[in-house]
Design a protein around this nucleic acid. Structure first.
Lengths: 218, 218
DNA sequence: TTTCAATATGACGGCTGATTCATGTCTTGG
DNA sequence: CCAAGACATGAATCAGCCGTCATATTGAAA
């Protein structure tokens, strides 16, 4: 909720000029996050947003051109917020492999604390496809860069890090959906240590040293 | 497109009684897939569906109770279709590990051939959440069962297969989104062999035999 | 051939909700 | 203090489209 006070740092070029205007701008955006998060884009009403914000209908259009515009603004902001949260947590990791586990954990925790945000981002796929792609493209690029660096340091096996990044992001998103939104009672440590192991070691049996996937017996 | 003739096998209890009625039922469903796929649920119009189907407005309501009902019908059908497609392809796999690669490949191919379906299923998250959860729950259960069996046969390392299943499904879905919908020019073999290797062997360097993720140097 | 349940029709009622606009009230620089 | 721009107001406008209904047609069983 009050993470949205971060909006203060995201004031666009079209930002309100006066302190009064800025305060209203932020309050409308906060209200929009709740409204969109609870009802979804289509069921959300401008009047719902303005009522939550305690302003009149018309005030909305003083600050935003349309329902879609405020939605896009929200997406951009949330991308920044999520990446900075995870980046901070992952920065403490001793190695890339450990970072995988910590990043996953940080992500699901974040989802649990920002269910509205999560829903809004997902819905962007249909409401604002450009914003949605940009959102994940930013994640993917950051992820790839980290993987590249880890390969450079010899921490992980070389491989196509773009493909890897999308696969790992997808895994995180679905785990976030399942264990963050649908069932937030599950112990996170449990999930992340299991999946962390999957990411680090894969499914294959330890000890038969097999790396190729060709020609099994039978 | 003509995969929808499979609808014939999905006739519900409320199905039309006569051959004429069934034919109409199927045509409306086919039309709905196109309309929803192209415009999304909210921008899709009943008149759009009936025009594509070549029937009058009212005919729609002879066969379906509402816009949402036909949408849910579509989701259920598509779940069956997808699982059967992948199941068939995966059945030919010599081992669970190879099945992972083949399953991923089959899935992305399927997505490329059914972009409408893909969009509709994703949108179900907001239009028909129950149907959406059921859709993925069915996948997850099937996936878990296969992993359990593979563990039983000693093909893969034991671990929490529920967590694994969600992670792997998420990876597939995102790879499908990226390499199936957004960029379908990429060579699939390339993607699936890379990601297949990630799933089977993980990120860790081969040869340092490390299995734990505790206490690295530095 | 007769009958009637199943199926088809499409104009219309009704509601919702985004956006506009004409009119006020602040706030600030000079 | 006083413009003049910035900001706020909310009733009115306007458009879209879901779902209903009274009526017509079909076709298969009797």
């Amino acid at each position: 909720m009050n993470h949205l006070s971060h909006f203060v740092h995201t004031l666009p070029d079209t930002a309100p000029k006066t302190a009064r205007g800025q305060k209203t701008w932020v309050r409308i955006l906060e209200a929009a996050e709740q409204e969109f998060g609870e009802k979804g884009f289509h069921d959300a009403a401008i009047t719902g947003i303005t009522q939550r914000a305690g302003v009149a209908m018309g005030t909305f259009y003083v600050h935003f051109k349309s329902k879609e515009e405020i939605f896009r603004t929200l997406i951009v902001h949330m991308g920044k917020l999520t990446r900075s949260w995870i980046g901070q947590r992952v920065a403490e990791a001793p190695s890339r492999l450990e970072a995988e586990r910590m990043g996953l954990q940080a992500f699901i925790e974040f989802v649990r604390q920002h269910k509205n945000l999560y829903r809004i981002v997902n819905e962007a796929q249909f409401v604002a496809p450009e914003a949605y792609r940009d959102y994940y493209a930013a994640f993917s690029q950051a992820y790839q860069r980290r993987l590249d660096e880890a390969v450079g340091r010899g921490e992980i096996e070389p491989g196509n890090n773009e493909h890897r990044a999308w696969a790992l992001i997808g895994a995180s998103v679905f785990l976030g959906q399942h264990y963050g939104i649908w069932d937030d009672s599950v112990d996170l440590q449990d999930v992340t240590s299991n999946v962390g192991d999957l990411i680090v070691n894969g499914l294959s049996r330890k000890g038969d040293g097999k790396t190729d996937n060709k020609g099994d017996r039978e």
